[in-house]
């Protein structure tokens, strides 16, 4: 009997297993993040065009569609960060005298400072911009 022709993998292969679906979800985080980065790039341009243009950009960032995009981007970047740090021990292996630094420690050593950044940087921005706007806010 001749060797049968193997059918080509169909485009929905990733839907059939939870692990594949999680993989696709992780890859899909790139789409809202790309669009969000475009919004920021647009903001840089408007910033250079003066106060009126910048205020128009602020209003643009407050429009319903862009609010939804930012909410999606926030969920996407959190999922990206979580999956990214889960993979750290596969890429970063630190040898010790007997074995290597446990993966769980490496994950924590990334996740803890990251969470600190996520909480402290917005608070810092709130504090700094509040000072600028209200004199004391």
């Amino acid at each position: 009997m001749r060797k049968p022709l193997l059918p080509r993998q169909d485009a929905l292969w990733w839907w059939r297993h939870p692990a594949y679906r999680r993989y696709m979800l992780r890859e899909a985080t790139a789409l809202p993040l790309f669009l969000y980065a475009l919004c920021l790039l647009y903001g840089v341009r408007e910033l250079g065009r003066g106060e009126t243009a910048f205020n128009a950009w602020l209003a643009f960032m407050g429009s319903p569609l862009i609010i939804v995009l930012q909410a999606l981007a926030l969920l996407a970047v959190l999922w990206h960060a979580w999956t990214w740090f889960q993979l750290v021990p596969k890429i970063l292996v630190i040898p010790t005298r007997n074995g290597s630094v446990p993966g769980q420690w490496l994950r924590l050593a990334h996740l803890l400072p990251a969470v600190l950044c996520w909480v402290l940087l917005p608070l810092l921005a709130w504090w700094a911009l509040g000072h600028v706007v209200g004199g004391a806010a």
Binding site: Y36, E51, F54, V77, F85, L121, P122, V133
Partner: peptide, 30 residues
């Protein structure tokens, strides 16, 4: 992105709109 992304989105989504209105000039300048 893993370190700064969530903070950045939180700033544009939550901090910028929550600033007291009426003084756009100083936010722009800052």
């Amino acid at each position: 992105l893993a370190f700064l992304g969530p903070a950045l989105v939180a700033i544009t989504l939550l901090v910028l709109p929550a600033l007291p209105a009426g003084d756009g000039a100083s936010v722009h300048a800052a």
